[in-house]
Protein backbone atom coordinates (compact mmCIF):
# COMPACT_ATOMS: atom_id res chain seq x y z
CA UNK A 1 0.00 0.00 0.00
CA UNK A 2 2.92 2.30 0.72
CA UNK A 3 4.10 1.88 -2.86
CA UNK A 4 0.69 2.92 -4.09
CA UNK A 5 1.06 6.29 -2.41
CA UNK A 6 4.39 6.96 -4.07
CA UNK A 7 3.61 5.88 -7.63
CA UNK A 8 0.40 7.16 -9.19
CA UNK A 9 -2.05 4.59 -10.62
CA UNK A 10 -1.30 3.45 -14.16
CA UNK A 11 -4.70 4.64 -15.25
CA UNK A 12 -7.18 6.74 -13.38
CA UNK A 13 -10.60 8.09 -14.21
CA UNK A 14 -12.05 11.00 -12.31
CA UNK A 15 -15.77 11.68 -12.29
CA UNK A 16 -16.45 10.51 -15.84
CA UNK A 17 -19.85 11.52 -17.14
CA UNK A 18 -21.55 10.67 -20.42
CA UNK A 19 -25.05 11.27 -21.70
CA UNK A 20 -26.18 9.48 -24.84
CA UNK A 21 -29.56 10.23 -26.39
CA UNK A 22 -30.84 11.81 -23.18
CA UNK A 23 -29.74 8.85 -21.05
CA UNK A 24 -27.19 9.31 -18.32
CA UNK A 25 -24.95 6.39 -19.34
CA UNK A 26 -22.09 7.29 -17.00
CA UNK A 27 -22.71 9.25 -13.83
CA UNK A 28 -19.53 10.61 -12.25
CA UNK A 29 -17.62 7.31 -12.32
CA UNK A 30 -14.18 7.33 -10.76
CA UNK A 31 -11.72 4.49 -10.61
CA UNK A 32 -8.01 3.94 -10.27
CA UNK A 33 -5.90 1.05 -11.54
CA UNK A 34 -2.65 0.66 -9.61
CA UNK A 35 0.11 -1.24 -11.36
CA UNK A 36 -0.48 -4.97 -11.63
CA UNK A 37 -4.03 -4.73 -10.39
CA UNK A 38 -6.94 -6.57 -12.01
CA UNK A 39 -10.39 -5.06 -11.66
CA UNK A 40 -13.55 -6.67 -12.96
CA UNK A 41 -16.65 -4.78 -14.02
CA UNK A 42 -19.88 -6.65 -13.61
CA UNK A 43 -23.47 -5.62 -13.93
CA UNK A 44 -26.51 -5.97 -16.14
CA UNK A 45 -26.51 -5.04 -19.82
CA UNK A 46 -26.87 -1.31 -20.31
CA UNK A 47 -25.21 -0.55 -16.98
CA UNK A 48 -22.51 1.45 -18.74
CA UNK A 49 -19.61 -1.04 -18.52
CA UNK A 50 -18.76 -0.87 -22.20
CA UNK A 51 -19.18 2.91 -22.34
CA UNK A 52 -16.90 3.28 -19.33
CA UNK A 53 -14.16 1.18 -20.96
CA UNK A 54 -14.42 3.10 -24.22
CA UNK A 55 -14.30 6.43 -22.39
CA UNK A 56 -11.04 5.38 -20.74
CA UNK A 57 -9.25 5.62 -24.11
CA UNK A 58 -11.57 8.24 -25.61
CA UNK A 59 -13.07 5.95 -28.25
CA UNK A 60 -16.19 7.50 -26.77
CA UNK A 61 -15.31 11.00 -25.60
CA UNK A 62 -16.70 11.59 -22.08
CA UNK A 63 -18.81 14.73 -21.52
CA UNK A 64 -17.12 15.49 -18.23
CA UNK A 65 -14.35 14.25 -15.99
CA UNK A 66 -10.74 13.44 -16.73
CA UNK A 67 -8.40 10.56 -17.49
CA UNK A 68 -4.93 10.36 -15.99
CA UNK A 69 -2.21 8.12 -17.37
CA UNK A 70 0.49 7.55 -14.75
CA UNK A 71 -0.63 10.65 -12.90
CA UNK A 72 -0.71 12.97 -15.93
CA UNK A 73 -4.00 14.25 -17.22
CA UNK A 74 -4.59 13.38 -20.88
CA UNK A 75 -5.52 16.30 -23.12
CA UNK A 76 -8.07 14.74 -25.45
CA UNK A 77 -7.98 17.70 -27.81
CA UNK A 78 -4.39 16.93 -28.79
CA UNK A 79 -4.35 14.24 -31.43
CA UNK A 80 -0.80 13.30 -30.51
CA UNK A 81 -1.63 12.79 -26.86
CA UNK A 82 -4.68 10.79 -27.79
CA UNK A 83 -2.73 8.44 -30.08
CA UNK A 84 -0.03 8.08 -27.45
CA UNK A 85 -2.62 7.25 -24.74
CA UNK A 86 -4.24 4.64 -26.98
CA UNK A 87 -0.90 2.99 -27.70
CA UNK A 88 -0.35 2.57 -23.99
CA UNK A 89 -3.87 1.36 -23.28
CA UNK A 90 -4.62 -1.92 -25.08
CA UNK A 91 -8.23 -2.70 -25.84
CA UNK A 92 -9.99 -5.99 -26.50
CA UNK A 93 -13.49 -5.98 -27.96
CA UNK A 94 -16.37 -8.40 -27.62
CA UNK A 95 -16.52 -9.02 -31.38
CA UNK A 96 -12.72 -9.14 -31.92
CA UNK A 97 -12.67 -6.51 -34.69
CA UNK A 98 -9.82 -8.13 -36.57
CA UNK A 99 -8.92 -6.54 -39.90
CA UNK A 100 -10.55 -9.00 -42.29
CA UNK A 101 -8.21 -8.45 -45.25
CA UNK A 102 -5.06 -9.18 -43.26
CA UNK A 103 -3.63 -12.48 -42.04
CA UNK A 104 -3.21 -13.07 -38.30
CA UNK A 105 0.43 -11.99 -38.52
CA UNK A 106 -0.41 -8.89 -40.59
CA UNK A 107 -3.15 -7.96 -38.11
CA UNK A 108 -0.54 -7.78 -35.38
CA UNK A 109 2.06 -6.16 -37.62
CA UNK A 110 0.12 -3.30 -39.20
CA UNK A 111 -0.06 -0.95 -36.21
CA UNK A 112 3.58 -1.63 -35.33
CA UNK A 113 4.51 -0.31 -38.76
CA UNK A 114 1.98 2.52 -39.03
CA UNK A 115 1.98 3.75 -35.45
CA UNK A 116 5.38 2.78 -34.07
CA UNK A 117 7.17 3.25 -37.39
CA UNK A 118 8.89 -0.14 -37.17
CA UNK A 119 10.37 -1.73 -40.28
CA UNK A 120 8.36 -4.49 -41.94
CA UNK A 121 10.93 -7.07 -40.89
CA UNK A 122 11.17 -6.06 -37.22
CA UNK A 123 7.42 -5.66 -36.95
CA UNK A 124 6.91 -9.08 -38.52
CA UNK A 125 9.31 -10.71 -36.09
CA UNK A 126 7.62 -9.11 -33.10
CA UNK A 127 4.20 -10.07 -34.48
CA UNK A 128 5.23 -13.73 -34.66
CA UNK A 129 6.60 -13.58 -31.12
CA UNK A 130 3.29 -12.17 -29.85
CA UNK A 131 1.31 -14.80 -31.73
CA UNK A 132 3.40 -17.55 -30.22
CA UNK A 133 2.73 -16.03 -26.78
CA UNK A 134 -0.99 -16.69 -27.29
CA UNK A 135 -0.28 -20.12 -28.80
CA UNK A 136 -1.08 -19.24 -32.41
CA UNK A 137 2.28 -19.31 -34.16
CA UNK A 138 1.04 -22.05 -36.48
CA UNK A 139 -1.98 -19.94 -37.50
CA UNK A 140 0.03 -16.81 -38.37
CA UNK A 141 -0.67 -17.07 -42.10
CA UNK A 142 -4.42 -17.66 -41.75
CA UNK A 143 -7.02 -14.98 -42.41
CA UNK A 144 -9.80 -14.11 -39.95
CA UNK A 145 -12.33 -15.90 -42.18
CA UNK A 146 -10.48 -19.16 -41.46
CA UNK A 147 -10.00 -18.72 -37.70
CA UNK A 148 -12.36 -19.83 -34.93
CA UNK A 149 -13.82 -17.21 -32.59
CA UNK A 150 -11.42 -18.14 -29.81
CA UNK A 151 -8.46 -17.91 -32.17
CA UNK A 152 -9.67 -14.53 -33.44
CA UNK A 153 -9.87 -13.18 -29.92
CA UNK A 154 -6.37 -14.48 -29.16
CA UNK A 155 -5.04 -12.74 -32.30
CA UNK A 156 -6.75 -9.56 -31.08
CA UNK A 157 -5.01 -9.97 -27.71
CA UNK A 158 -1.65 -10.52 -29.43
CA UNK A 159 -2.31 -7.42 -31.57
CA UNK A 160 -2.93 -5.30 -28.47
CA UNK A 161 0.03 -6.77 -26.57
CA UNK A 162 2.41 -6.07 -29.44
CA UNK A 163 2.00 -2.35 -28.78
CA UNK A 164 3.45 -3.00 -25.32
CA UNK A 165 0.55 -1.44 -23.40
CA UNK A 166 0.76 -0.47 -19.73
CA UNK A 167 -2.83 -1.46 -19.13
CA UNK A 168 -5.43 -3.56 -20.92
CA UNK A 169 -9.15 -2.90 -21.20
CA UNK A 170 -11.15 -6.03 -21.99
CA UNK A 171 -14.75 -5.44 -23.04
CA UNK A 172 -16.60 -8.76 -22.60
CA UNK A 173 -13.81 -10.71 -24.31
CA UNK A 174 -15.67 -14.04 -24.26
CA UNK A 175 -19.30 -12.98 -24.72
CA UNK A 176 -19.34 -13.61 -28.47
CA UNK A 177 -17.72 -17.03 -28.20
CA UNK A 178 -19.22 -20.50 -28.33
CA UNK A 179 -18.99 -22.09 -24.88
CA UNK A 180 -16.30 -24.58 -25.88
CA UNK A 181 -14.01 -21.77 -27.09
CA UNK A 182 -14.19 -19.62 -23.97
CA UNK A 183 -11.56 -21.59 -22.07
CA UNK A 184 -8.68 -20.89 -24.44
CA UNK A 185 -9.26 -17.12 -24.23
CA UNK A 186 -9.64 -17.17 -20.45
CA UNK A 187 -6.35 -19.07 -20.20
CA UNK A 188 -4.57 -16.30 -22.10
CA UNK A 189 -6.15 -13.64 -19.88
CA UNK A 190 -5.17 -15.57 -16.74
CA UNK A 191 -1.64 -15.82 -18.07
CA UNK A 192 -1.56 -12.03 -18.55
CA UNK A 193 -2.79 -11.43 -15.01
CA UNK A 194 -0.19 -13.79 -13.59
CA UNK A 195 2.51 -11.90 -15.45
CA UNK A 196 1.46 -8.71 -13.71
CA UNK A 197 -0.53 -6.96 -16.48
CA UNK A 198 -2.75 -4.19 -15.18
CA UNK A 199 -6.26 -4.90 -16.44
CA UNK A 200 -9.87 -3.95 -16.24
CA UNK A 201 -12.29 -6.55 -17.56
CA UNK A 202 -16.00 -6.33 -18.20
CA UNK A 203 -17.28 -9.88 -18.14
CA UNK A 204 -20.05 -12.25 -17.14
CA UNK A 205 -17.58 -15.06 -16.36
CA UNK A 206 -18.08 -14.75 -12.62
CA UNK A 207 -16.17 -17.71 -11.26
CA UNK A 208 -13.24 -17.11 -13.58
CA UNK A 209 -12.96 -13.45 -12.68
CA UNK A 210 -13.48 -14.14 -8.98
CA UNK A 211 -10.33 -16.22 -9.08
CA UNK A 212 -8.11 -13.49 -10.46
CA UNK A 213 -9.70 -10.12 -9.65
CA UNK A 214 -8.32 -7.89 -6.96
CA UNK A 215 -11.55 -5.98 -6.99
CA UNK A 216 -15.09 -6.35 -8.31
CA UNK A 217 -16.90 -3.21 -9.39
CA UNK A 218 -20.64 -3.67 -9.71
CA UNK A 219 -22.23 -1.19 -12.09
CA UNK A 220 -25.85 -0.30 -12.52
CA UNK A 221 -27.45 2.66 -14.33
CA UNK A 222 -24.14 4.36 -15.06
CA UNK A 223 -22.77 4.13 -11.54
CA UNK A 224 -20.44 1.88 -9.60
CA UNK A 225 -22.78 0.93 -6.76
CA UNK A 226 -20.65 -1.71 -5.04
CA UNK A 227 -16.97 -2.46 -4.97
CA UNK A 228 -14.76 -4.78 -3.00
CA UNK A 229 -12.82 -8.02 -3.18
CA UNK A 230 -14.69 -10.91 -4.79
CA UNK A 231 -14.53 -12.94 -1.58
CA UNK A 232 -16.13 -10.10 0.33
CA UNK A 233 -18.90 -9.33 -2.15
CA UNK A 234 -19.71 -12.96 -2.92
CA UNK A 235 -19.87 -14.17 0.70
CA UNK A 236 -23.18 -15.91 1.22
CA UNK A 237 -24.26 -13.55 3.99
CA UNK A 238 -22.96 -10.39 2.37
CA UNK A 239 -26.42 -9.51 1.12
CA UNK A 240 -24.75 -7.58 -1.70
CA UNK A 241 -26.39 -6.62 -4.96
CA UNK A 242 -23.37 -8.24 -6.61
CA UNK A 243 -24.09 -11.62 -5.01
CA UNK A 244 -27.72 -11.55 -6.10
CA UNK A 245 -26.72 -10.66 -9.69
CA UNK A 246 -23.96 -13.27 -9.88
CA UNK A 247 -26.17 -15.97 -8.45
CA UNK A 248 -28.76 -15.23 -11.10
CA UNK A 249 -26.42 -15.34 -14.10
CA UNK A 250 -24.58 -18.39 -12.75
CA UNK A 251 -27.88 -20.19 -12.48
CA UNK A 252 -28.72 -19.28 -16.07
CA UNK A 253 -25.35 -20.25 -17.49
CA UNK A 254 -25.26 -23.53 -15.54
CA UNK A 255 -22.28 -22.64 -13.38
CA UNK A 256 -22.00 -24.15 -9.91
CA UNK A 257 -24.72 -21.84 -8.65
CA UNK A 258 -25.13 -19.80 -5.54
CA UNK A 259 -23.61 -22.41 -3.25
CA UNK A 260 -20.41 -22.54 -5.26
CA UNK A 261 -20.24 -18.76 -5.47
CA UNK A 262 -20.93 -18.34 -1.80
CA UNK A 263 -18.01 -20.57 -1.05
CA UNK A 264 -16.00 -17.91 -2.80
CA UNK A 265 -13.22 -19.51 -4.78
CA UNK A 266 -14.77 -22.96 -4.73
CA UNK A 267 -15.14 -25.87 -7.08
CA UNK A 268 -16.46 -23.81 -9.98
CA UNK A 269 -13.34 -21.67 -10.03
CA UNK A 270 -11.02 -24.67 -10.15
CA UNK A 271 -13.14 -26.09 -12.96
CA UNK A 272 -12.77 -22.82 -14.85
CA UNK A 273 -9.01 -22.92 -14.46
CA UNK A 274 -8.64 -26.46 -15.69
CA UNK A 275 -10.89 -25.83 -18.68
CA UNK A 276 -8.73 -22.84 -19.52
CA UNK A 277 -5.50 -24.77 -19.28
CA UNK A 278 -6.85 -27.62 -21.38
CA UNK A 279 -8.06 -25.15 -23.98
CA UNK A 280 -4.65 -23.60 -24.36
CA UNK A 281 -2.90 -26.98 -24.41
CA UNK A 282 -5.07 -28.19 -27.25
CA UNK A 283 -4.28 -25.12 -29.34
CA UNK A 284 -0.54 -25.00 -28.70
CA UNK A 285 1.68 -24.99 -31.77
CA UNK A 286 3.22 -28.29 -32.76
Amino acid sequence: MAAENQTPPVLEARALGKTLGGNRVLDAVSLALPKGCVKVLIGPSGAGKSTLLQCLNFLIPPDSGSILLEGREVNARSRRELCSLRQQVGMIFQDFNLFDHLSAMENVRVALMKVKGMSKLDAGELALAELSRVGLLDKAALYPANLSGGQKQRVAIARALAMDPKVMLLDEPTSALDPELIGEVLAVIRDLAQNGMTMIIATHQISFSASLADEFLFMEKGRVIESGSPAELLRRDSGSRTLAFCAKISELSGEAGEAGLAAGLGESVRAGVSVGAAGLGAESPV
Binding site: Q54, N57, L59, C83, S84, R86, Q87, V89, G90, M91, F93, N97, L98, F99, D100, A111, K114, V115, A156, R159, A160, M163
Partner: peptide
Protein backbone atom coordinates in the same frame (compact mmCIF):
# COMPACT_ATOMS: atom_id res chain seq x y z
CA UNK B 1 -12.59 -2.30 -37.30
CA UNK B 2 -12.08 1.47 -37.33
CA UNK B 3 -12.51 1.54 -33.55
CA UNK B 4 -9.94 -1.25 -33.21
CA UNK B 5 -7.49 0.65 -35.43
CA UNK B 6 -8.01 3.84 -33.40
CA UNK B 7 -7.61 1.87 -30.17
CA UNK B 8 -4.17 0.78 -31.40
CA UNK B 9 -3.16 4.42 -31.75
CA UNK B 10 -3.79 4.94 -35.46
Amino acid sequence: QIRAALALGM
